[in-house]
Amino acid sequence: MEKTVNQRAWFLVIPVLILVAFSSIIPMMTVVNYSFQDTFGGNDFFWVGLEWYRELLHSERLWDAFGRQLLFSSIILLIEVPLGILVALSMPKKGITASICLVLMSLPLLIPYNVVGTIWQVFGRADIGLLGRALSDLGISYNYSQNAFDAWATVIAMDVWHWTSLVALLCYAGLRSIPNAYYQAAMIDQASRWSVFRFIELPKMRGVLMIAILLRFMDSFMIYTEPFVLTGGGPGNTTTFLSIDLVKMALGQFDLGPAAAFSLMYFLVILLISYVFYTVMITADKDEAQS
């Protein structure tokens, strides 16, 4: 069949191009632009080349924040993924109780981030908070605004509370898609509970787990609002994660150049880790199917 050549079709693409330009390309390029320049105010900029990048790569402050960020993401993944699977496995399969569970599980996901921060901030206060008061009445010294360990514990508990549901719901969906015949066959084959999990449930949840891990990694690596509301990055810098540090740099100190370079490196790191993770999982999947 002859293809019709009609250049006017380009006009139809223009609205999308404009939208994308304003929503992503122009803001992004502005940041790129800032990252190579310096200013002393008054809208005067001059070219500094890779200066900011070089400086940041040697900055202890950035590496510390990066380390804290990696530690945080690893801890919450290590808690939320197994916990989410466990919750999904123990949720009822059908009936009214299943519906109630689903609603209860979704509730934390519906609460705005800064509200979550506020809830936990109040919850943990030693004078009026349920958690803080209970702990101090039990004779346990707990103060998330003074003690770094307590601050970390609270931030992690808050994230686990907020996001385990997501992992659990995804896994639950994966589990529900397993045909009953698999469980029946396992019964006939006299498989143990562990074997059922290891050889039926886990392999069938593989796809949704991949998505859950990817989502939780990206999200936790970018976390800002909740710890900012709860601890403000403190005590000291102990809970200052990358994005909190970035905001301090860009808005607190108004160092636009370094902050822009920081943003871009931040973005690339997330992109890189997610890409590597995804590729590794997909290749492993293919290899296994072929071998």
Partner: peptide
């Protein structure tokens, strides 16, 4: 101690 074969294939994927 009964064996049963189902209508649709049931295999343990990872094995």
């Amino acid at each position: 101690n009964i064996a049963q074969v189902f209508q649709f294939p049931v295999v343990y994927d990872t094995m």
